Amino acid sequence: MPTTHDGAEPTTPAERFGAVVHAAAQRAGYNLRTGSGGRAALAKDTGMSASAVGRMLRGETLPRPSQFERIARAVHLDLHDLLVRGGVISPDSANDLSERVRSLPITPEEAADAWGISNPMIRKILLANIRQAIGMQRDSERDQEQAGGNTAQR
């Protein structure tokens, strides 16, 4: 069980998460003693403010979900491991997390599958509409780029 920065057992989710990050940050080479610069370096490496890092390490607050990945990377922990050990998600939910979290966009066919659209006619209509929307988006972006380019030449 992790301990807080002052050696006590964590009693809140924020304290548990802070204790896990504190220990991992020290193992990763961050000197977290006051005035050492380690907290500022951790803040820079995670994209968080120094005050937010301090509150997190003291177990006062949990970081925003959008910051978890950068924290894990900075302290050399696997994201799933950080979230489980930090008490953000249960060990059971972490087993399924990699199947639900994607770094690449899904195809229209994958979207139809994920939504359970199996009726051939409905699926055909859905896929055609998605492809049309993608094409319209690309046309719009191209028009905006061309308009921006024309403005820059004036």
Rank of each mutant, 00 (worst) to 15 (best):
L126V: 15
E109P: 03
E145Y: 05
D139M: 14
V84F: 02
M121T: 09
V84M: 09
A147G: 12
N95Q: 10
A128G: 13
A133H: 12
K124H: 11
E60W: 00
L97C: 10
S118D: 14
N95D: 09
R85C: 06
D92W: 11
A94C: 07
I125W: 15
R64Q: 08
V53F: 02
Q144V: 07
A112F: 00
S98M: 13
S66G: 15
R142K: 11
L82A: 02
L57Q: 00
D81E: 11
E69I: 03
G135A: 14
Q132A: 15
G148M: 05
G116T: 03
M136L: 13
G148C: 05
T61P: 07
L62P: 01
L82Q: 03
R64A: 13
P91M: 06
D96Q: 11
S51C: 04
V75E: 05
R73N: 12
Q137S: 15
A114K: 13
I71W: 02
E109W: 02
H80S: 15
R73V: 12
Q144E: 08
A52N: 12
A94R: 01
D96H: 10
S103W: 13
I130M: 03
P108G: 03
L97T: 13
G54L: 03
D96L: 12
V84K: 04
H76Y: 04
V84A: 05
V53D: 01
I106N: 09
L62K: 00
E110C: 07
S118Y: 08
M121G: 10
P120G: 06
R138Q: 13
A114S: 11
N95P: 09
A133G: 13
P108A: 02
R102C: 08
T61S: 14
P105V: 08
G116S: 04
S98D: 10
L82W: 02
E69D: 09
S90L: 14
L126Y: 14
R138K: 07
G86E: 01
L79D: 02
V75G: 06
I134E: 15
L104M: 13
Q137N: 06
L127R: 01
D78V: 02
I122P: 11
I71Q: 06
A112V: 01
N119L: 08
R131Y: 03
R58I: 04
A72T: 00
R131T: 14
T61C: 10
H76C: 08
I130K: 01
A128T: 15
F68Q: 13
D143C: 12
S90W: 05
L97W: 08
N119W: 06
L127H: 02
R123G: 00
T61Q: 10
A94W: 01
E60A: 15
N95R: 11
L62A: 01
V75M: 08
E69H: 09
R58W: 04
R100H: 15
P120F: 00
G86R: 01
S98R: 13
I117T: 03
I106H: 07
T61N: 14
P105C: 04
P91Y: 04
